[in-house]
Write a protein that binds this DNA or RNA. Structure first.
Length: 394
RNA sequence: GCUAGGGUGGCUGAGCGGUUUAGGCGACGGGCUGCAGACCCGUUACACUGGGGUUCGAAUCCCUACCCUAGCUCCA
């Protein structure tokens, strides 16, 4: 299948390192709050990629982390007077509840950053030894100019961020980033060669991904907001460490917009998944999230879910009709055309919006009861809606 | 500045190489009503940002200009 690679900005044919095996890493959430529908989109979209690859004969090794070491977690835990680990556990539990409602399949493994502190320290030591990192002030920094290739994912870094770079710093270059820093007294910290400290953000994903998948990943997926700086930095750390290109295909899904603006925790305009589920079905939300391709923006407005609910209901009715007629029937020429369009859309960089449109057209034909058209075998397409798109029609 | 995606009839919005050019809103006419609304029926829009090019043929592909939207070391 064709996949859009953020690094090359082109669609490329998927070629994995090992035939029929895809080693995939997905950046999971930082667990200090409920997941919102932006998260839902990321994990639903990847879930569809995984289901489609599995349906076409791949084994997908899917590793997805939980970031449970982060300032926001400790801050919130302190506010609420609970243990940071307990807080993280609570929101991990909530995450799984939400994903179950959305019919997202479980990953192969869910490593947690807190389990990888030792490995992060080792990586940092190794980078210092190799000359890619230096100590300044109370932190160890990765030296971007030593690595080369910085800005590969975001494209023309200097132009993109020239006005926003903080130049009042002890860093050698404003783009250098923290690998490890001293822990303040009130913070949780870990003993390291540089004293009691805390990890920077990016190393954890490199540590967790390599531990389960090896030095080179086939697919690395995340929300578009992780391209810079997170994935940019991950790629540099990994390359410095192994000398190899870390990721073959970088994939990023677009945002969910709320009233035309990006939904994000920092601006406070998020819609939590569990709030949606009070009034709507998980199927409706999943239908909405798949009604466009993963690289298109979705504007979340009032009524969008009602429309999705209706759409899902019609597809469900059509599926019942198609299955009543005969599940094992051979596909008619007409249905084979629909199937061709459906799988063609999926094959072309996971165009779920187009695939859904095909299903809707087919549903219309089935429900309008127009005579003279042979739609036998249509049940198989609805099987794919359930199995590949993961939209329950039962 | 950079990256991605757009500019379609009064508005919104599909279509993304070629037969009847979606749908919705509106407008207009009719039905129903004491009147209006809601509802129902019908009518109405060859429109595709400007300029080049490819083609037998372009809203649809390519180039270029202009304009718009979102994002750009907290984030999925």
């Amino acid at each position: 299948m064709q996949i859009y690679n953020t690094r090359t900005r082109e669609k490329e044919e998927l070629m994995t390192q090992t035939p029929n095996v895809v080693k995939a890493y997905v950046c999971g959430p930082t667990v200090y709050d409920y997941s919102h529908i932006g998260h839902a989109r990321t994990y639903v979209n990847f879930d569809v990629l995984k289901r489609y690859l599995e349906a076409t004969g791949y084994e997908v090794v899917h590793i997805q982390n939980f970031t449970d070491v982060e300032e926001k977690i400790t801050d919130k835990a302190r506010e609420e007077g609970v243990d940071p680990t307990a807080l993280a556990n609570k929101y991990i539990g909530e995450y799984f509840k939400d994903m179950d409602a959305l019919n997202v399949k479980r990953a192969t493994r869910y490593p947690r950053a807190s389990e990888y502190i030792g490995r992060i320290i080792e990586i940092t030591k190794s980078l210092v030894a190799k000359g890619y990192a230096y100590q300044a002030g109370d932190a160890i920094y990765f030296e971007v100019s030593k690595a080369g290739g910085y800005g590969e994912l975001i494209g023309n870094l200097k132009g993109a961020l020239a006005d926003k770079v903080d130049r009042t710093t002890v860093k050698k270059d404003p783009f250098d980033f923290v690998l490890w820093r001293e822990a303040k007294e009130a913070e949780e910290g870990w003993e390291s060669p540089w004293g009691r400290g805390r990890p920077g953000w990016h190393t954890e994903c490199v540590a967790m991904a390599m531990d389960s998948l090896g030095e080179v990943l086939d697919v690395h997926w995340g929300g578009k907001d992780l391209i810079y700086p997170h994935h940019e930095c991950e790629a540099l750390i990994a390359k410095a460490l192994t000398g190899k290109t870390f990721v073959r295909y970088w994939m990023h899904n677009e945002f969910v917009l709320l009233r035309g603006e990006k939904m994000s925790k920092s601006t406070g305009n998020t819609v939590p998944i569990h709030e949606i589920l009070k009034r709507h079905s998980g199927e409706a939300l999943r239908t909405l999230l798949l009604s466009k391709g993963y690289r298109e923006k979705i504007d979340f407005y009032d009524g969008a879910l009602d429309e999705a609910e209706q759409k899902h209901a019609r597809i469900k009715m059509a599926a019942e009709q198609a299955r009543k007629v005969g599940a094992g029937d051979k596909m008619s020429t007409c249905v084979r055309d629909y199937a061709g369009m459906f799988f063609g859309a999926m094959d072309d960089d996971l165009e779920t919006g187009k695939a859904m449109a095909v299903v809707e057209h087919l549903s219309e034909e089935l429900l309008s009861g127009r005579p003279g058209k042979d739609l036998s075998g249509a049940a198989r397409i609805f099987d794919a809606v359930e199995g590949v798109l993961g939209i329950r029609l039962g």
